[in-house]
Design a protein around this nucleic acid. Structure first.
Lengths: 193, 193
DNA sequence: CTGTCGAACTTGTCGATGACAAGATTGCGC
DNA sequence: GCGCAATCTTGTCATCGACAAGTTCGACAG
């Protein structure tokens, strides 16, 4: 599908270059600045130095571009979760860290009204992330308490997701500090204790 | 500040009526349909039967309208939480229920990039909701475990907020069913157990 | 080497939107 | 009744997403 050249973020060579990549990179920047809803395809085109209609050729419409971003995001999240897989607490911390450090992806991924949630590539990527999540919970230490894996997975996902979104929304009180990993560890450990 | 007439959602009497109220009601409808980001002031004006520039007179701009909605939402949430205050689990269930049944409010409240988060009325309302939240946690059953109120409050808030947002995003697996209260109770009880 | 074909990109346009300016209407206080 | 200020309207502009039609360029066949 996509044609990957050797060099990544080449800014020249747009006429016959990797515009698709450049647009996605520009979209990440723009989303960090104004959020996914206020994203403007024409602004991306300007950032990439192409005409205002060029983005439509690669993504169809704005939803198409955000669909590609969301799919990429779910893949990155799956990868992140897999790396910290054997420790549920660390997987939760990694989840929060992903949300904060790759905010643009995260902001799009859980806003399905902005993209095509039934896109095949996206569904596959989301499923990979879900599998990574579940396998993290399955590898629980499992003390004396009987483990209800389904419920525990939802609880773990909920608390990590909730902390991440509250952090991103700036809704948390100042005293949580400015290190999301540390703050997340303190809160998430309430569940695993 | 606001002039509250006796009748509430009067649809006639726009020229000199309660346009402000009618616009907020229309906004709630529109947000349920298309989300807060795709909200159009001109659409609200059409729904209320007034000219396209009328909304600006009451709210300044779109952010002004959403600020008013968010403030109202935090007040409603504070009220909801206060009612179920002595039981942490039920407060969590009420939080999720609020998010689902008053989705339009909830969708705006935690998206501060859409409104003016430093608005005085809004800050006050948000503080009331925060106080209600904290007092719910302070009234914990407090079994043998030593209670860290701050951490526990964040954990409780996170898990309820996370479950609510995942539910609204349609990200949860089908097997959680279609009753948010029941599903929330099952998951949240993982924390209080 | 050359011609053709299709992908990549451009130019032009339309309807909708948010914001602003300026004017009209209405009811309230004096 | 009379003026004033809040409320609402009309008009306009820049910007945006989407679409249509045209242009450029490279790959590939012969």
């Amino acid at each position: 599908m996509a044609r990957y050249d050797s060099r990544m973020t080449d800014t020249r060579a747009y006429h016959h270059g990797d515009l698709r990549r450049a647009l996605l990179a520009a979209a990440l920047e723009a989303i960090e600045e104004v959020g996914p809803a206020a994203l403007s395809l024409r602004d991306l085109a300007r950032r990439a130095g192409v005409s205002h209609a060029a983005p439509a050729h690669h993504f169809g419409d704005k939803a198409g571009l955000l669909t590609a971003l969301a799919a990429q995001g779910f893949d990155l999240l799956a990868q992140t979760l897999t790396e910290a897989d054997d420790d549920l607490l660390e997987a939760g911390v990694a989840y929060v860290d992903f949300a904060v450090t790759r905010r643009a992806y995260f902001d799009v991924m859980f806003r399905p009204e902005l993209y095509r949630a039934d896109d095949a590539e996206l569904v596959a990527a989301r499923e990979r992330a879900g599998a990574a999540l579940r396998s993290g919970v399955a590898a629980l230490p499992a003390g004396g308490v009987p483990v209800d894996t389904g419920r525990d997975a939802l609880a773990a996902w909920s608390i990590a997701h909730g902390f991440a979104t509250l952090w991103l929304a700036g809704a948390l009180p100042d005293r949580v500090g400015d290190d999301p990993r540390e703050a997340a560890r303190a809160v998430l450990s309430r569940l695993t204790a």
